[in-house]
Amino acid sequence: MTEKAEFMRLPATVNLEYKYSTGRYLGRFYKELRDNKRLVANKCGKCGRVLFPPRIACPDCMVRASDEWVEVGPQATLIFFYELQIPGLAERHAANYLGVLALDGTEAELSCFEHRLMVDDPGKLREGMRMEPVFNEEGRTGRIRDDILGFKPIEG
């Protein structure tokens, strides 16, 4: 008897809700961004590296970060950008263009991050161009992806 096997699949959703602590260091960043629209970083007391995002220890020196805090940005340099052509990605990130940005006062190679680009004419996007953040005004959380809606080119 050769009956064709039927292969079944069992659908399931794994739903996990976490509560993430921001801790002392990233927590200070969150508070400054939420309350004062200021972007801050801390520093390694040994090598002087600006730690952005702020954190407990310098990866290169493995010593506890100093108590020195600095303001960084809000202006930034666009390092790289791309159009989100993959189905679903544009919706997920609520943007058609994403950029890799380095805030002024941070070490680009160690502290750049991805964010939405807000541009009228994508054809004008250039690597190396100067950008500034557009802040979210309502329901601020301190989270960089929520409180900054995106980066736009600095006019002029």
């Binding site: 976490y18 993430y20 969150y30 989100l84 990605l89 990130h93 994403l98 890799v100 989270r143 992806r145």
Partner: peptide, 19 residues
Amino acid sequence: DYLWAIHTGAFGWFARMGR
């Protein structure tokens, strides 16, 4: 890192690497 910025992951990385 849930608490940090947007992250497109592998696609963004390897596009940048190619470019």
